[in-house]
């Protein structure tokens, strides 16, 4: 217990020091435009999601044109390219198929990943509306949203993904530890 208190005090002291800031006077202050342009972070609460919207209806054409050549018409994957749909109910089985629909806990994760990293050859080339639309289409493939459901910064974080409660914190060490 005393060790816990000591660690807490140390952490508190560190945080107080950390809150003061700026003693080397190095670097420069970003402009609001630079912050706006570079900050693409998105959080499960929806923080960071930009304006814009889209549904699976618009997403289908974009998906077929930009995504299907790697991920398949129905998100089944192709060759070395992973499936992104299907696999619901397989996580306990001998051959689990972990996809966006069956495994990913947050819809914001799909939006963020598509926005960051997809399409593989041209990441960053989709507009915000297109990212909402493609996200909607990928979720629609597994019946998580309906075809006409409009996703935007308000509605996307409210989607409860099928495997939202499927994660546990790291319990390790989960094997033998000797007492010293």
């Amino acid at each position: 217990m005393s060790r816990f208190l000591l660690l807490s005090c140390l952490l508190l002291t560190t945080l107080i020091v950390l809150a003061q800031g700026g003693k080397h006077n190095l670097g420069r202050v970003p402009t609001p435009e630079e912050l706006q342009a570079r900050d693409i972070s998105v959080f499960p609460t929806g923080a960071g999601l930009p304006p814009g919207e889209g549904s699976a209806k618009e997403g289908r054409n974009i998906y077929v044109a930009r995504c299907a050549s790697c991920h398949g018409e129905r998100g089944e994957g192709r060759g070395a390219n992973p499936p992104i749909a299907g696999g619901l109910g397989t996580l306990k089985s001998e051959a689990p198929r972990a996809t966006v629909g069956s495994y990913w806990p947050y819809a914001t994760t799909a939006w963020d990943y598509i926005n960051r990293a997809m399409p593989y050859q041209e990441p960053g080339s989709l507009s915000a509306d297109e990212v909402y639309s493609v996200t909607a289409y990928v979720l629609y493939l597994d019946g998580i949203v309906s075809e006409g459901e409009v996703l935007n910064a308000k509605s996307l974080p409210k989607i409860k993904m099928p495997n939202r409660d499927g994660f546990v914190p790291d319990p390790r060490p989960d094997t033998r530890t000797q007492t010293r």
């Binding site: 990913w104 994760t109 990943y113 546990v168 914190p169 390790r172």
Partner: peptide, 28 residues
């Protein structure tokens, strides 16, 4: 930030799927 972003690599990749179908997250 006040929370993890839950990027693909932390929310889906690099998680460990257990026999009961639950997956361990933030197994750093």
């Amino acid at each position: 930030a006040d929370q993890p972003s839950m990027t693909r690599e932390e929310a889906a990749g690099y998680t460990d799927l257990m026999p009961d179908g639950k997956a361990r997250m933030f197994t750093f």
